[in-house]
Design a protein around this nucleic acid. Structure first.
Length: 443
RNA sequence: GGCCCGAUAGCUCAGUUGGUUAGAGCGCCAGCCUGUCACGCUGGAGGUCGACGGUUCGAGCCCGUUUCGGGUCGCCA
């Protein structure tokens, strides 16, 4: 009788390991990525989970004969000897002298777009239409490996700071913030909404776990058809209790970003190299009050009309300013006007016109909004009334305040947008595996 | 949703003033090439020029409608 031991055999040999294994017979599994046939040898590039491994076929040392089964995108198991490559430029590389090839599976058709070159060359819409195939391209896949690194860094850092990872419901009776841009759906005859933010729930969990975070999709039914908007995106959210000041939240974010960038530079070095990603160096992040930032913009830029918020042009200017003044890719802008922030935002006791809130600009583009929340029941009810909201509709939400909540605050970070700006893409969809937008729900 | 631009081979694109059989590169197929690394060389297959209608002796090209795609603008992560 067969027994399951919980141990899987790994056939994968990391490339970096090859220099220590010269002369050894190894087995690798992967897809045939590319075949370059010469007169009596052939180079077969095997695509493993994270890299390309050059394998050399020759009638001199290969038992298998190349036939109609050895084609690109076939799955193969290759045995061979690790040898040093003969490279023209003298660079140190290693390859496999193929002894045996076992074809595990063969494709039924040729890929609709060429994925075996350095880059996938096609329109974004064609790329997205063929996502299951185009993602196989090493450069394309590196984007999402790097994105995994961002999530992983966020998670690992917060875990180290005693945050508890939670998952809040995505099907709700009411929109968390009562907004209009929520998706409605039929739920056994009742109308329910897809979560546009975990706000309500992550705050409710502060008196439970003190510090919580969530990495999960959120849904926005906005009719915007732009290169920056998605109707479903991954939000990295955190909420922390017993804060002395909203700067505690900013410090947590700076710590997380430092950790993330360091993780990318070390454990995601192959992807960073492949994508030529410019990973920012973070020592400390400068802060500026909204009012002061606005004054700077008015002084340096023309035609500033909106005094309550920033135009994209102003954000870009502030990004450059932070780089020049502080050599920082990041800039915190604090104390946004009360009327431009959500109802749960804590007003500054020293100046009720502004809030204990912040945005984080990365290279001149906003990537985070956060701040301290109201924890006092009466204060929250009063602010709701002042904003024309009916507190009775928020009964569940207000249970947090009614039965006692510590001073707390948090933030939200869009994963795809951060990936996009880190890699310098012009369209979020480049940094989204399977984007959902106003025109696309497939694949 | 408003405005601007586009749609030609599987992919990326040329196509002159409206005129015979619509081209290139990549991919694919066949052959050649002692080490390629976006290999190279020779040849071949592959097209309802987005769709519908109109003008014309004649439309890939001009006009109208429509579908799809790209850019841009409120709001935002």
């Amino acid at each position: 009788m067969q027994e399951i031991t919980g141990v899987t055999t790994s056939a994968y040999t990391p490339y970096g390991d090859f220099k220590n294994r010269i002369g050894e017979e190894v087995v690798i599994r992967g897809a045939i990525h590319n075949i370059r046939e010469m007169s009596d040898i052939a180079f077969i590039l095997i695509r493993t989970d994270r890299e390309l491994i050059q394998c050399v076929y020759s009638t001199e040392f290969s038992d298998y004969r190349l036939d109609e089964n050895v084609v690109e995108q076939a799955s193969a198991k290759i045995t061979g000897k690790v040898v040093k490559s003969e490279t023209r430029d003298g660079s140190e590389r290693y390859e496999l002298q193929i002894h045996g090839i076992e074809i595990l599976s063969k494709p039924a058709a040729v890929p609709p777009v060429v994925i075996s070159k350095k880059q996938v060359v096609c329109d974004l819409s064609v790329n997205l239409d063929n996502r299951p195939v185009t993602l196989r391209n090493p450069k394309e896949r590196a984007i999402f490996k790097l994105q995994e690194g961002i999530q992983r860094g966020f998670r690992e850092y917060l875990q180290s700071q005693n945050f508890t990872e939670v998952h809040t419901p995505k099907i709700n009776f009411a929109g968390a913030e009562g907004g209009t841009n929520v998706f409605k759906l039929d739920y056994f005859g009742k109308t329910v909404y897809l979560a546009q933010s975990p706000q309500l729930y992550k705050q409710a969990l502060v008196p439970v776990f003190e510090r919580v975070f969530e990495i999960a999709p959120v849904f926005r039914a906005e009719h915007h058809d732009t290169s920056r908007h998605l109707n479903e995106y991954i939000s990295m959210d955190l909420e922390m209790g017993f804060i002395d000041s909203f700067t505690d939240i900013m410090n947590t974010e700076a710590g997380a970003l430092k950790y993330i960038m360091n993780l990318l530079k070390t454990e995601y070095a192959p992807e960073v190299e492949l994508l030529k990603a410019d990973i920012p160096e973070i020592t400390s992040i400068p802060c500026i009050r909204f009012k002061d930032a606005k004054e700077l913009c008015v002084k340096k830029l023309k035609n500033i009309t909106d005094m309550k918020d920033f135009e994209p042009e102003e954000e870009a200017f502030l990004g450059k300013w932070a780089k020049q003044q502080f050599n920082s890719d990041f800039l915190f802008v604090t104390h946004y006007l009360s009327k431009k922030r959500p109802f749960y935002t804590m007003d500054d006791p020293d100046d009720p016109e502004v809030t204990l809130s912040f945005d984080l600009l990365f290279r001149g583009i906003e990537i985070t909004s956060g701040g301290q929340r109201i924890h006092d029941y009466n204060m929250q009810v009063e602010k709701m009334k002042r904003l024309g909201m009916n507190p009775e509709e928020f009964e569940t939400y207000l249970m947090l305040h009614k039965y006692g909540a510590p001073p707390h605050g948090g933030l939200g970070l869009g994963l795809e947008r951060l990936t996009m700006h880190l890699l310098g893409f012009k369209n979020v969809r480049n940094a989204t595996m399977f984007p959902r937008d106003i025109n696309r729900v497939s694949p």
